[in-house]
Design a protein around this nucleic acid. Structure first.
Lengths: 352, 352
DNA sequence: GATCGGTGGTCAACCGTTTGAGTCAGGCAC
DNA sequence: GTGCCTGACTCAAACGGTTGACCACCGATC
């Protein structure tokens, strides 16, 4: 009997197929696969059911289940671009945290949907995920309202500030201060900043941290040393070229992210300017890549995986109607490699 | 009336709430949002319904819908690791293709699930996605059987070979031949290969292409010049160091992927070996990053975005019970930058 | 010999949508 | 006046699981 559901090209088998084959009620099958403690079952019966499941290749239908239970065991993460390696780290942490609570994390990028977050909000909006994480990018107030209206728990990653209601962010200001202080400690006075794009919240905070740390060190920021760039190698290269061509170039550069730093190093190479002999370079985010650049890049390590994991936890634990504002400050630490050197160490420290 | 569903902290609004508020039957609402051609509706009624939807912030419940229609408008993509930038390109292409047919692509990585693909098969298995794309990694025959049993359309990206039943892959053999031929054309005879990890299918095909192209050029492959490495900078660095320390080092190296090439360039830098003056380096995959390496990396460009897009199309178009074997060979082309040079061009072409 | 408490299940309502089939009022042809 | 059509809806049965309530049987207890 029931071979139709087993080997036909036809429909997938359902819980009723399993129940019929095992000669029990559907509810027994359901309680068994969910280990419902209210289930009392003979070992022989249990085995019959398990055999039937195996024989039919039965998997519960996620839609039906979520319809009844109002839970999907799925979390969504929306990022602007998979090509930015920073997100790979955040995703890794978030996936692990999700797995720990028996959920699966699915990630999508705004590029695919024509940079239109709205499309994803529609598609993921209701009954597909239990919560939505929004990383990077920019979020308008109306988009926040929209999210709240949908009654979906949500959390923004790395966008802080007074206009935001539910976020978790890294302490970018501290990271910037750490970088600038390192350069100052090496004797640098003309310290430039290749910041992130306008509108980016992390860029704003790192820039503030840079300005603040300079002043703390008794240095007056020079507007000519403050430029912006996309978070890409191309952006970083353009900005670095601009800085190095100026009449009074910096002796050290604090780059807002490692992707831009790759371009910055490359621009210096193209102009035959030795790093760190002539110019020191330091960047935020200690990605695996950083150690393999030429020269190995001095960075400020940020707890990206932790950020992703913590975001998942808060999304699930906190009341979806309350505001969330959390800033992660630990551990943020300097990783000194070969792209920074003391001012005036001169060509002596340059590689041949 | 019905304020409960609108502004209470309570449940999300359903199609019934909308119908009640607009004083029509649920079916009218349903047909309206799906533009069912069988719907005849007065303009005033239509507006009432639209207003009710807007007022309640109504979104259809994806689970209920997929339960009824047996479609989710969602496709899943499983990759081994988000840190590998090759996948960023594939994802981009796949997302765009999915969006074009009104679906959303969600991506997950095996790392999050403890490297256990099985977990994802369970979670995504049934009723959550309309089809599953599996990229990279390795797939056993039993896993293929499992997928077939679940009756979910699936397709493997970049794993070809006789044991595989449903795949789409790039012509890695051609890419390898292009690389080797370029090096041979520059006069190189001792050409090494830093291949991908054992078990990787792309690695196997690139290695075969390398061996075949060498023989085509009348060169006998030297086993000492054939090493393997993980698809990471660290892996590439280790392999390169090994090659360069040998008593008879190569004059050119064909690296299986750009991530490893980053490490290879770095290893040469650490050993003060000039690229390309002393050793030429070429790699597969022309990622944006390649142009920003030091020196800019000569690569073989592969249509990664096209691969992702085509995978989505085939997943949806082809009969899920038939085998699929497609190899994409066009466009695959050489991108010459500065990491390769003619044999014996000597230190003259090296940068200061 | 009626009652009690497990044990090992069964029954049926419900979750939110979709969709084939049916209803009903009004207009038109004959 | 009857029949037929059409426009504008309404009705109700699925879809596949979950879960609180219920039941039949059996051995033990009072």
């Amino acid at each position: 009997m029931n071979t139709m559901a087993r080997d036909g090209k036809g429909r997938r088998s359902t819980i009723s197929d399993v129940a019929a084959l095992a000669k029990v009620d559907r509810s027994v099958v359901s309680r068994l696969i969910n280990d419902d403690p209210r289930l009392n079952i003979r070992d022989t019966t249990r085995q019959r059911v398990l055999d039937a499941i195996e024989m039919l290749g039965y998997r519960p239908h996620a839609g039906a289940r979520s319809l009844r239970t109002a839970r999907t065991q799925t979390l969504g993460l929306l990022i602007p671009d998979f090509a930015n390696p920073v997100y790979a780290e955040i995703i890794k942490g978030a996936e692990r945290a999700a797995a720990k609570v028996g959920s699966v994390l699915v990630t999508g990028s705004a590029t695919g949907a024509g940079a239109n977050t709205g499309v994803y909000l529609d598609l993921l909006g209701h009954g597909r995920v239990d919560g939505l994480l929004l990383a990077g990018g920019t979020m308008s107030a109306s988009q926040q309202d929209e999210l709240a209206r949908i009654r979906l728990p949500w959390l923004v990653i790395n966008q802080a500030g007074p206009g935001k209601r539910r976020y978790i962010a890294l302490d970018d200001q501290k990271a910037a201060a750490l970088a600038v202080t390192h350069l100052v400690g090496l004797g640098h006075r003309r310290i430039a900043h290749i910041g992130g794009p306008r509108g980016s919240d992390t860029a704003r905070r790192r820039r503030n941290g840079y300005l603040h740390a300079l002043r703390q060190a008794g240095l007056e920021p020079d507007p000519a040393l403050l430029v912006t760039a996309e978070y890409t190698p191309e952006g970083g290269a353009k900005a670095m070229t601009h800085l190095l061509q100026s009449s009074a170039p910096p002796t050290a550069v604090f780059v807002a992210t490692v992707a831009s730093a790759i371009g910055a190093l490359h621009a210096a190479y193209e102009m035959s300017i030795a790093i760190p002999a002539q110019v020191s370079v330091i960047a935020v985010h200690d990605l695996p890549l950083a150690a393999s650049l030429i020269p190995p890049l001095t960075t400020v390590r940020m707890p990206l995986q932790h950020l992703g994991a913590r975001a998942v936890e808060m999304l699930l634990d906190e009341d979806p109607n309350e505001d969330i504002r959390e800033v992660v400050s630990e551990p943020i630490e300097l990783v000194v490699r070969e792209s920074t050197a003391a001012l005036g160490a001169g060509a002596g420290s340059a590689r041949p």
